[in-house]
């Protein structure tokens, strides 16, 4: 676009429209946040609309009194960390292997890629998981996520773009395939692995349906899942917390309300994403562009 151009009506409208769109995208986050730090009584009556009123942060301390929340946070964090590490490692290694003359390379590559476009359906999948003993089992959060064809394509494309001479010289020095992978390839492909780590951790953190399908054991509930339950049960939880704190709690205005529980738990769920988002943003643009290239 030419730099020297008058600021016309077109520009004005364009800026205004994008400002409004951006506002619509951000407002729910903001609205939720100001409601968690405002007077709980006002907030539950919907009177905190555009700015916080009677600032306080007790909700963020109280939220950990909710039975099961700490455990759920642990589950979510655990599956995110373990799942991401394994997915990244597997994608890196498989992506590398598929650039080598493996036995039946083409066939096995297709074998994996097809699974991106085809699945047997929910019930057969559920019954398979049941038969594999992966209901009410933490491994159900990890194992199905390890092999991700899309990520493998990303790595394979990336490895193919790195100079082959590096691998060859290491091999001349007597390095085996695994050694070449760990000492040559792995450091080279860290940019794409960062992208994969981001996508994978967001998927893991946000995952909700697998808990819904496979888990009835409360110990294995994730944050997303209990947030969903709180949406419907917040009233009874507030009651419970009121009883447990009893008459000791004189701060009536900021006692836990269904609204305060809903909003605060939501903030706890979204906070990790908001915190890392500014840093990972530059990675996913790169990732989606490589992904756009046909695998």
């Amino acid at each position: 676009m030419p730099a020297k151009e008058k600021f016309t009506l077109f520009h004005f409208i364009n800026y205004a429209v994008f400002a409004v769109i951006t506002l619509i995208c951000v407002f729910p986050f903001y609205y939720l946040f100001i409601n968690t730090i405002s007077n709980n009584d006002l907030s539950s009556r919907g009177l905190v609309m555009f700015y916080p009123k009677d600032l306080h942060f007790t909700n963020y301390l109280d939220v950990f009194k909710i039975p099961g929340l700490g455990q759920a946070a642990l589950m979510s964090a655990g599956r995110t960390v373990i799942g991401t590490i394994l997915t990244v490692a597997a994608s890196a290694f498989l992506g590398y292997l598929f650039t080598k003359q493996m036995w039946g390379r083409k066939f096995w590559y297709r074998f994996l890629v097809i699974t991106m476009y085809f699945n047997a359906g929910l019930i057969p999948w559920y019954l398979t998981m049941l038969n594999l003993g992966l209901t009410n089992n933490f491994a159900a959060y990890i194992l199905p996520f390890i092999v991700q064809p899309f990520f493998i394509i990303l790595v394979k494309t990336f490895v193919e773009s790195t100079p082959i001479a590096l691998q060859e010289s290491a091999q001349i020095d007597g390095a085996g395939y695994f050694k070449v992978f760990t000492s040559i390839i792995f450091p080279l492909i860290t940019p794409i692995l960062a992208t994969i780590a981001i996508f994978s951790s967001v998927t893991q953190w946000n995952s909700f349906t697998d808990t819904l399908f496979l888990v009835t054991d409360q110990k294995l509930f994730t944050l997303q899942f209990i947030l969903y339950r709180y949406m419907n049960e917040a009233t009874s939880i507030a009651q419970l917390m009121k009883q447990s704190s009893g008459s000791m709690d004189l701060d009536l205005a900021n006692m836990a309300t269904p609204t305060s529980i809903r909003t605060t738990v939501s903030m706890v769920v979204v906070l990790p994403i908001l915190l890392v988002y500014p840093f990972f943003q530059r990675f996913f643009v790169k990732g989606i562009m490589i992904g756009a290239v046909k695998g």
Binding site: L94, Q101, N119, A120, W125, T128, L132
Partner: peptide, 29 residues
């Protein structure tokens, strides 16, 4: 070592089989 390479990939191919292909058997239901 093309077989060697395949053996290294095998555990992951088994995972893909378990979670993406084995459910096809469930169509029998």
């Amino acid at each position: 070592d093309k077989y060697h390479l395949f053996l290294m990939a095998l555990p992951f191919l088994i995972l893909a089989f378990l979670f993406s292909y084995l459910p096809l058997y469930g169509w029998i239901y």
